[in-house]
């Protein structure tokens, strides 16, 4: 059975297909309908996790820290259904787009920071956030989540997308995922995992809560 969608996320029909949608200004030319815009699971790992029915624990209105926000495609949807949303991205070019997305969203705070160095943004991001999203696609993805554990409330949720090919292209994805989960278990209890196919190849979606 599929968990309930968080408040602020609905399945709506676009061009005859039922798709996830949130309410907000369009960001990347996605289809819109009466103020709702498509949350494309093929472009968003978090969207794929919700679409595939992982029990994300999302209820809507969460204070969120999003690591690896890139151009802001996914984090814009998080800000649509969430509360204060901190978006960390380290590459300058996508941050230019992220700033554009944040300008129209008063609850979205863009930060040009390195997610591997939480001390460089701990003076901005508040403690006890409800949701930590790990979407940084560099080697050591699980360790990034571990290092950012300090921001998460004890009853909060980590939603992580582990990309096998960011760790090692030559290894079997299953081995890479096993290692990443072992790293995560230093500071999290893993509640659920699922491969994100067909939306994203060689990605593992992970739901975890802090130990």
């Amino acid at each position: 059975m599929t968990p309930d969608l968080p408040d602020g996320v609905e399945r709506r029909t676009f061009d005859g297909r039922e798709r996830l949608a949130t309410r907000g200004d369009p960001v990347y030319g996605e289809p819109t309908d009466e103020g709702w815009r498509v949350w494309d699971a093929g472009r968003s790992k978090l969207g794929a996790m919700v679409e595939l029915g992982l029990d994300t624990g999302l209820a809507g209105g969460e204070t969120a820290l999003y690591l690896g926000a890139a151009s802001g495609t996914t984090v814009s949807h998080v800000a649509d259904f969430g509360g204060p949303t901190y978006a960390v991205e380290f590459a300058p070019r996508p941050v230019r787009d992220l700033v554009g997305v944040a300008e129209d969203r008063p609850n979205l705070f863009p930060l040009l920071k390195d997610a591997r160095k939480p001390e460089t943004y701990a003076h901005v991001v508040e403690s006890d956030v409800d949701l930590l999203v790990q979407d940084v696609a560099t080697r050591g993805q699980a360790r990034v989540a571990v290092r950012n554990r300090e921001f998460l409330a004890d009853d909060g949720r980590l939603l992580a997308a582990i990309k096998a090919r960011s760790e090692d292209v030559t290894r079997d994805p299953d081995d890479v995922f096993a290692d990443a989960l072992a790293d995560l278990e230093e500071s999290y209890e893993v509640l659920e995992t699922e491969r994100l196919e067909p939306y994203h190849d060689d990605h593992l979606g992970v739901v975890a809560r802090p130990l």
Binding site: R93, R96, L108
Partner: peptide, 14 residues
């Protein structure tokens, strides 16, 4: 925070 963060990120990215 929103004003300051948008400004900081825009400047830093540029």
């Amino acid at each position: 925070l929103h004003d300051a963060a948008v400004r900081a990120s825009r400047e830093a990215a540029a």
